[in-house]
Amino acid sequence: MNAELTFLFIIEVIGTIAFAISGIRMAAAKHFDWFGAYTVGLVTAIGGGTLRDILLGIPVFWMQTWWYLAVTGLSLFIVIAFKKILVKTQILFIFDTIGLGLFVVIGIQKTIAADYPFWVAVIMGVITGALGGVIRDILVNNEPLLFQKDIYATACFAGGIVYWIMSLTGASQLAQGLACAAVVILIRILAVRFSWSLPVLNQNE
């Protein structure tokens, strides 16, 4: 396995754990049982990638190996074992943000590997990163972040543009992925820290 494939595998594992923990932790806050929390965590981790693969016409990634189910189980154990630490909202935000950044990279790289143009790759990066969180929020009866004025999908899009710019410079796929994830994570953190938001569409104005 070369360096780039190793990098893709590592970020997929980390991203899956991060998103699964964010989903499980949110389900726990709503007093779901273990099975319900596991289900929410799994859907959070695989939801965006599932739609991506269906749209791209390629085999759905989690149906090719069992380890996505196992990693979600590990995430459930982590939440149970460290629940006193994970009750902090900031921790949930960190896991969600890390998963968001890493999944955007995965979505872009898999789309490019399927020989689609880069504008499609950026869209698939946004879908891979953001859709799992949307499904998670719906399952726990929260208004999805994607539909609020919060900077969420916009951060994914910005990361995708950075990936594209890096590709034009001839940078390695590893460097492109790192830059993309870093931008998504940084924008999310800064948006929350400084209360950045998109304009609200108000029909009464």
Rank of each mutant, 00 (worst) to 15 (best):
N204D: 14
W119A: 13
G36M: 02
L102E: 14
D115H: 15
A28G: 15
V162Q: 02
G101N: 03
L51P: 08
W34K: 14
A37H: 06
L145Y: 04
L186Q: 07
F103P: 01
L102W: 14
Y163W: 09
M124S: 08
A121V: 05
F19I: 12
K149F: 10
P59C: 15
F118N: 10
G177E: 02
I165H: 06
G41H: 02
I78N: 00
D53C: 13
F147K: 08
A28Y: 15
L201T: 05
W67N: 06
L168R: 10
N2H: 11
Y163E: 09
A158R: 11
V183L: 10
I94H: 06
I46R: 00
L201Y: 10
I106S: 08
N141L: 12
L178R: 09
G125N: 00
S22I: 05
P199H: 10
I112N: 04
G57D: 10
T97H: 11
I94P: 02
I94F: 11
I185W: 02
V79E: 15
Q90A: 09
A113G: 08
L201M: 04
S195A: 13
A3Y: 11
C156A: 13
W34Q: 14
A81S: 08
G99C: 05
K149H: 05
G48C: 13
F118H: 01
W164R: 09
C180M: 04
L190E: 02
L8Q: 09
K83Y: 11
T39W: 02
F9D: 04
V134K: 03
G49Y: 06
R193K: 14
I127E: 08
A28W: 14
I14M: 11
I185G: 01
F35P: 07
L74W: 06
I151D: 09
Y38R: 15
N204T: 13
I11T: 11
A182F: 10
V104L: 13
A113V: 09
G125P: 01
A130S: 14
V13F: 03
T128C: 03
F19L: 06
N142C: 07
R136H: 10
L5W: 04
V104N: 08
W196G: 07
V162C: 03
D33A: 14
G133P: 02
L42S: 03
A3E: 01
S172W: 13
V126K: 03
G170W: 01
M26H: 14
G125Y: 01
G107Y: 03
C156W: 06
G41A: 13
D150F: 13
T39C: 15
W196A: 11
G132W: 08
V60Y: 15
Q90N: 15
V104Y: 04
F95C: 01
A191D: 08
I21Q: 09
D137L: 01
G47L: 02
T154D: 13
W164C: 14
I78V: 07
L168T: 02
A114G: 07
L74D: 12
R52S: 00
S172Y: 01
A191H: 08
V13M: 04
A45L: 03
T44P: 12
K84E: 12
G36S: 01
I189Q: 05
F103T: 06
